[in-house]
């Protein structure tokens, strides 16, 4: 009797934990559901094609224009420029940490990277606004320091920790025996890193880069405060832009509840969600592929 009760309790707990564990999926499903519920109505007014490729974002004009192409370009270009900074810096830092640094220096540099990751985005945005923007304005002779370039730098330092930490894990998990074999053949440490360690960690590093980019494209406060906010396709890196997350954050407060503008902002949310969802699926695919085939990815 007691025995069967214990058994029953054990089984019950198993299901309880399972149920809780599915919370994450349910939340993800709910997010999808509610985004679409609140965003889809805009497509009764504007076609999907016109929404995505429309060149004019004048949500409060009469008649209103809901074309988010300039916002998409803004997001993509600011992310790409930030990637030009964050990928080399992040990967090189990871190499330094896992392959070169003495254990004492690593104990110092690693927390620095972690603290960088923990800086609130609003603080980085604020820093970009009050320190970097005037600096750029004075030294580059441009109209406004609040522009794509500034936002890209700030975003880069927000995604470096992601890129660095995951890359370092990947580099670190390359078997020491491979590195030893290379060194024993008379390769220098640097040659070993370039020809053995990096290729073996490649898919892990790709995952890191994609997750870093995903973080940059979804980051809100920095682009809201620093990117300049002009909803136009930029002509130079010193032009202001208005990336997708910035538009949502800036306009939601003034958008009338369940008006076209409100729906349009949720539709932007859908686009953003799809962007980052794809990035994450790719990252997941890459890291799993790596796991399944072991070292034989080359």
């Amino acid at each position: 009797m007691i025995h069967s009760f214990t058994k029953f309790k054990e089984k019950l707990m198993n299901y309880f934990f399972l149920l809780v564990a599915t919370t994450s999926i349910s939340i993800l499903a709910m997010i999808t559901l509610f985004l679409f519920k609140e965003g889809l109505p805009i497509f009764e007014k504007v076609g999907i094609k016109a929404f995505i490729f429309g060149n004019y974002w004048y949500p409060t004009a009469d008649p209103a224009h809901f074309g988010i192409f300039p916002l998409i370009i803004g997001s993509v270009s600011v992310t790409l420029i930030s990637a030009l900074i964050s990928i080399p810096l992040g990967v090189m830092t990871a190499i330094y940490l896992s392959e070169i640094a003495s254990s004492r220096l690593r104990e110092i540099v690693k927390p620095v990277v972690e603290l960088l990751a923990s800086l609130p985005s609003v603080v980085i945005g604020f820093f970009g606004m009050v320190i970097v923007a005037p600096f750029l304005q004075d030294h580059f002779n441009i109209a406004t320091g609040l522009n794509m370039f500034n936002a890209a730098i700030m975003l880069a330092f927000m995604s470096i920790p992601t890129i660095c930490t995951i890359s370092e894990d990947a580099l670190y998990s390359v078997p020491a025996s491979l590195k030893e074999a290379s060194l024993a053949l008379g390769a220098t440490s640097f040659e070993t890193i370039v020809k053995v360690t990096l290729p073996a960690a490649l898919s892990g590093i790709s995952t890191a880069i994609i997750l870093g980019l995903s973080r940059a494209i979804g980051e809100t406060m920095v682009v809201l405060m620093v990117a300049g906010g002009a909803a136009m396709v930029p002509g130079s890196i010193f032009d202001p832009v208005r990336p997708l997350p910035g538009s949502i954050a800036a306009e939601m407060a003034e958008a009338p509840y369940r008006g076209d503008h409100y729906y349009a902002l949720f539709a932007i949310g859908i686009v953003l969600f799809i962007f980052t969802f794809c990035f994450n699926i790719i990252a997941d695919y890459l890291s799993n592929k790596y796991r399944q085939t072991g070292d034989a990815t080359l």
Partner: peptide
């Protein structure tokens, strides 16, 4: 990976 602003919308 969901952007923070999307959490806000949700």
């Amino acid at each position: 990976g969901v952007p923070s602003v999307v959490f806000g919308l949700f």
